[in-house]
Amino acid sequence: MDSKLVVSPSPHVHSGESTSRLMFNVVLALMPAFAVSLYYFGIGALFVTLLSVLSCVLFEYLIQKFILKVQPTITDGSAIVTGLLLAFNVPSNLPWYIVVIGSLFAIGVAKMSFGGLGSNPFNPALAARVFMLISFPVQMTSWPLPIESRLKYIDAVTGPTPLAILKEGLKKGDTISQIADQIPSHLQLFMGVMGGSLGEISALALLIGFAWLLYKKVITWHIPISIFTTIFIFTGILWLVNPEKNADPIFHLLTGGVMIGAIYMATDYVTSPMHPKGMILFGIGIGLLTVIIRVWGAYPEGVSFAILIMNAFVPLINRYVKPKRFGEEVKRNG
């Protein structure tokens, strides 16, 4: 032994987990949904996704290197995840420049201006999505129809999402049974045969990814399950009260990005609470807001807004929802 002994404080072993590995697992978990998207939306999905990921990574690199003048950290994979999620939240026929502007907003405004990874209060991909939705409402809400648009990009055949059909129909005064034949069946919704953002459509693929994330312990069940349960119960009550004016709870769970929002966006480490109790509170908040926006609000879907609003409450939740300390109970009793 010729080298000097190393002295360091305990612990002397480490789990081997790293930020880049966590991010890599998220990317892996998104792959089934990506495959489904490629199957339904073809080259458009491929182009938008690649463009989004590349521009997110590039913007992160450029901002860190030339504006912040720090060592670029693109290898941690967080920009890739942001790029993927951003792409998954837009239609596959979105013009390239909007994708690039969205990426710039996600990385430049929503992430880097707050101090980069770990410091942003809002989920960058979602913030960018809402920004794009407000800035380019037409392009952001023209949804290519699955399968028919496989070989098309800008010129894709478009149609409304199931939730938009529902909202339109109810506004006209139609009942659920009158609209029913225009919207896909539950099985179709589950498999993803509907118009929508390119990665949000297939609940099945997203749930496979969820299972992977849970298995790899990247996320815990608390946030997604509390969102699902809240939406299910809330819409279930409305549905039981008036099944002709309110869609059934399963329909609500399978449409409008609830799956991708609950599993991948709401669980974003940086913008979600630090403790299981807080996570459940956060999830319930998102569920309630989503349903309120959907049923009484102007937009047909409400997951993005719900998550962003709850993101703003995270510091407050972290401050007031504390883990139960060991030995606390006893002290109070005794």
Partner: peptide, 30 residues
């Protein structure tokens, strides 16, 4: 040697793994 030194630090991503790992219910990140 390969296991003797710590890996390079990066920033806290608020993953909350330290909170769930703490057997005393503390919040190490804080």
């Amino acid at each position: 040697a390969a296991e003797s030194k710590r890996k390079a630090e990066s920033v806290c991503i608020r993953c909350a793994k330290c909170v769930s790992a703490c057997p005393m219910g503390l919040e190490p990140y804080l």
